[in-house]
Design a protein around this nucleic acid. Sequence first.
DNA 1: GGCGTTCTAGAATATTCGTAG
DNA 2: GCTACGAATATTCTAGAACGC
Lengths: 146, 146, 146
Amino acid sequence: PDSIRPDGFPAKLWWLVNNPRVRSVCWDSRGRTVLIEEHLFVREVLGVGPGAGGAGEVTGVAITFNTKNFRSFVRQLNLYGFRKLLADQAAPASGNTSHLHCYRSPHFCRDRPDLIVHLKRQARAKKANLATLLQLPANLPPSVPG
Amino acid sequence: PDSIRPDGFPAKLWWLVNNPRVRSVCWDSRGRTVLIEEHLFVREVLGVGPGAGGAGEVTGVAITFNTKNFRSFVRQLNLYGFRKLLADQAAPASGNTSHLHCYRSPHFCRDRPDLIVHLKRQARAKKANLATLLQLPANLPPSVPG
Amino acid sequence: PDSIRPDGFPAKLWWLVNNPRVRSVCWDSRGRTVLIEEHLFVREVLGVGPGAGGAGEVTGVAITFNTKNFRSFVRQLNLYGFRKLLADQAAPASGNTSHLHCYRSPHFCRDRPDLIVHLKRQARAKKANLATLLQLPANLPPSVPG
DNA sequence: GGCGTTCTAGAATATTCGTAG
DNA sequence: GCTACGAATATTCTAGAACGC
């Protein structure tokens, strides 16, 4: 039936959350929610920041994202149906003000790798471009003068 | 069915009133009215005043408001249907002459956490949307089909 | 006529870009595009990161945002009609790999403070109300399963 | 066409201010 | 003076849309 693309987003996320070497992504205690520490993730996985080699500290492993923006990672989470839970409560004693993000999907559980096949991208092209049809002024080009 | 946003106002208020570490917010003896001591609340929760770290004394817990004004907190109470009661019986334990506010909602009782789902924001769009609709392109029908 | 809210987003942005103490926001050479260095902005204005006092390094001045997320700042830019330009020419002096964002609006020019009054928030309810009026099938509820 | 990246917009809640009652 | 509410802006999470591979 359905198969999992080994280089697709669900497989990458599964690998990240289950890899003990990746400290920025982990399960909550019940294995139902993915916890992502933003600042560490950017350095560790996306490879941005001081001391980062440019491709993530966790190199030598077959995980790469073609982005350096945490925003793109969040967009992927949403595209695959993940929802955010609590706002970041992170306030460590140290100078670390890193944000902690909590995302959850019913098809992403620690003890149920068989559910990953249900992680699908949202359907595209839900409706035609209504605004274009009605020629709304909001769709005019920006038209920035020289 | 209906779900409670974990970061929404009702959830925050429920957490505050039931947390013994928060001294500025508590139930009355019958568990039907929320008592809020303004001066202490401002220091303890909003994080304003002497000795406050800027994020509320009750840090280490996942409660944050993006405001430092007690008025915004009251606005939220009103938006969710709370009404103020006269607080003539107010008698703070200490010699504090700070203001004591008593707010009540039929959907906010100590022994009935199941009622919180009925705490809804006031309905929007009374007449504001009508004015917006009338500014739409003239070729649209002004009346909404029944 | 129209007036500028002194605490609104346009006034804040104008203050930021014209204040030499704010190093993360500046004009391009022609005074037509706003350049924002993200990492520095987060530390300097939003007050996040090591060494930040929690309210931005540029304290003592009347600029505050109630957020710590750069994304909220970008949302404001878009709400007021700013568009992003490609920043391939970005080359910070230091070894910083921070992101440089270039945003432009025809109503935001260095030598024309009189244009700021034209910076307006996007009108609300453009397509949403239209879709409702036209009874598009796309507005059906998400159909929560059993 | 599917998938990933990126910029922009939608939608709901939150904050602020003014003011009616 | 004080409470409650309208209205505008602000913040946040999610989705739309365009583009490239």
